[in-house]
Computed example of a mutant assay.
Amino acid sequence: METEKTSEELVRGQAEIWQHMFSFADSMVLKCAVELRIADIIHSHDGAPMTLSQIASCIDSPSPNIPYLTRIMRLLVRKNIFTVHHPSDGDESLYGLTHVSKWLLHGSDLSLAPMILMQTHPSMMAPLHCLSKCVKEGGIAFEKTHGRQVWDFASQNPEFNNMFNDGMACAARIIARAIMTGYKDGFGCIGSLVDVGGGTGTMVAEIVKSHPHIKATNFDLPHVIATAPLHDGVNHVGGDMFQDIPNADAVFMKVTDFIY
């Protein structure tokens, strides 16, 4: 009996290792769905379920590979990102949105699409191969991979900088709503506020929308501020927070911890 139990545990352990080994595929397929705008395609169809042929016809490609798309959608359905309905009359299967896939919509106030593209970008994924090296030698994985910190890398790569800022902005927009719900009365006594490391100003702009009396400053590195859009009631200032920060009644900081 003990031998059988041990054997079963070993098999379960092996199965779990296989799952962990290929879990990266989940992120890559999610990235694929965002890049192909599958959620947007179904959403633009009044949210009504669509066949693979209909979805494929809306993909920006002269000849999309339907069998490959089928495999992609099979995994996305398995992960409950999309739904599938198989008609009993033999017609094509219909794919629909879920409460999960609605977070993949481009241009939505509550979208994680930019963050997905940022986190799965090759430049962000490559440092993960250096984790064991960092344990052995110390240091930061991103620096070991690219020879500089992520902020310096972004300042020298405009395309990466825009993608990084978009990803951080979409997360800030979501977090801001949670903060405004739970701390909505806490900003009433503040006359001025500086968001240190505020990216393109999304977070502090959301605060000012609800509390227009606040004189707000968005403070970040010059190359970040250079791409920041105008926000009503927000003044953008570039600089180094380790050297000096603008004066204000209160300082706001949203800390993001990157393992790399």
Rank of each mutant, 00 (worst) to 15 (best):
L110I: 14
L110V: 13
L112V: 15
P114R: 07
M115E: 12
I116Q: 06
T120E: 13
T120L: 05
T120Y: 01
H121M: 05
S123V: 13
S123I: 08
A126P: 07
L128W: 13
L128R: 14
C130E: 15
L131G: 00
S132M: 03
K133H: 09
K133A: 03
K133P: 00
V135N: 08
K136A: 04
E137N: 15
G138L: 04
G138Y: 04
G139D: 02
G139T: 08
I140N: 11
I140A: 01
A141V: 09
A141Y: 05
F142K: 11
F142P: 08
F142C: 09
E143G: 05
K144L: 11
T145Q: 13
T145N: 02
Q149H: 09
Q149D: 11
Q149K: 12
W151T: 14
D152S: 10
D152P: 00
F153T: 05
N157A: 03
N157E: 13
N157P: 04
P158C: 06
E159L: 08
E159D: 15
F160H: 07
M163T: 14
M163F: 02
M163L: 14
F164C: 00
D166W: 11
D166C: 11
G167Y: 15
G167L: 13
A169P: 07
C170F: 03
C170D: 08
A171K: 10
R173E: 07
R173M: 05
I174H: 05
I174W: 09
I175L: 05
I175G: 00
A176D: 06
R177N: 02
A178M: 04
I179M: 11
I179G: 01
I179R: 07
T181G: 15
G182P: 00
G182W: 06
Y183N: 09
D185V: 07
G186Q: 08
G186P: 00
F187D: 07
